[in-house]
């Protein structure tokens, strides 16, 4: 039943929204070749289209121009090969955590097999004892872990994470990052992770893709959305205090317009 990690190919992807004040271009000419099993972090200033880019891959939205292909074929709505964990947990409040995870199972999974898989995933995210609780009875961190388990239940070739740890407290966030490293090691899958946390990107990703805001006056009128792609050295799990990473972090923050120190 294992689905292998799948490559993602974004070719000249652009997205323009029609608004009452005219059209608003959010993404322009995004080209990205993600290898199977690779972890990609998407960072950029708010409004730069990180989440929109992720929505193109999950087929919850359709690009205005260009194409998105997973494993060589275009993505379709509700694509069996991809799974999303949203910024908010988005759990069904009337279902138990276990039943919420079961929502992620591929349709027509045999009942017994599905139940076993849900139990296994709850165990993986450390919620085995909370299976029968309802979303309102658990903390934000537990809800996010449930949301991650639900995405994993799909056994996706490509896992799409939209700032899934953004709303969590700092310590819970670090634990969730380690959990993700652990999950990726046990069951390699391609990961596209949207984050506003540069440290998180450097800790988790093989490559960090920096997007630029098209509305920013400093952006050249013809420039594409991808400002640069940074290869992150070293194998996971990484040392959070590694000086190579801290140097990269300063460099990336500068790219995002936030110098780490005040210049004289």
């Amino acid at each position: 039943m294992h689905q292998l990690a799948l490559p993602v190919l974004l070719a000249a992807v652009g997205r323009t929204f029609a608004t009452p004040d005219g059209s608003r271009e959010v993404l322009r000419d995004v080209n990205l070749d993600v290898h199977a099993g690779e972890v990609i972090a998407l960072v950029g200033p708010s409004g730069c289209g990180k989440s929109t880019l992720l929505r193109q891959v999950s087929a919850l939205d359709t690009p205005t121009t260009g194409t998105v292909a997973v494993g060589g074929t275009p993505v379709t709505p509700g694509d069996r090969r991809t799974a999303v964990a949203f910024q908010e947990p988005r759990l069904l409040p009337w279902r138990t955590l276990a039943a919420n995870v079961a929502l992620g199972l591929p349709l027509r999974t045999p009942r017994a097999q599905g139940a076993a898989r849900v139990a296994e995933l709850l165990d993986l995210v450390g919620l085995a004892d909370s299976a029968t609780l309802r979303p309102r009875q658990v903390s934000g961190g537990m809800a996010q872990r449930t949301s991650l388990a639900r995405a994993l239940a799909r056994d996706p070739g490509v896992l799409l994470l939209d700032e899934p740890f953004g709303a969590l407290d700092a310590l819970t966030r670090l634990r969730m990052q380690d959990l993700l490293v652990n999950v990726h090691e046990t069951r390699p899958t391609t990961v596209l992770l949207v984050t506003h946390d540069v440290e998180e990107a450097l800790y988790l990703a093989d490559r960090v893709v920096v997007l630029r805001g098209l509305a920013d006056p400093a952006t050249a009128p013809s420039a594409g959305s991808v400002a640069r792609v940074v290869d992150v050295p070293g194998e996971r799990p990484r040392d959070r205090a590694d000086h190579v990473l801290t140097d990269l972090r300063a460099e990336l923050l500068e790219d995002l317009g936030v110098p780490t120190h005040v210049r004289p």
Binding site: L60, P77, G78, A83, G104, L107
Partner: peptide, 12 residues
């Protein structure tokens, strides 16, 4: 958001 989550997991 819940409806979209349902769609994302293949419900229509």
């Amino acid at each position: 958001q819940l409806v979209e989550a349902g769609r994302a997991f293949g419900r229509g």
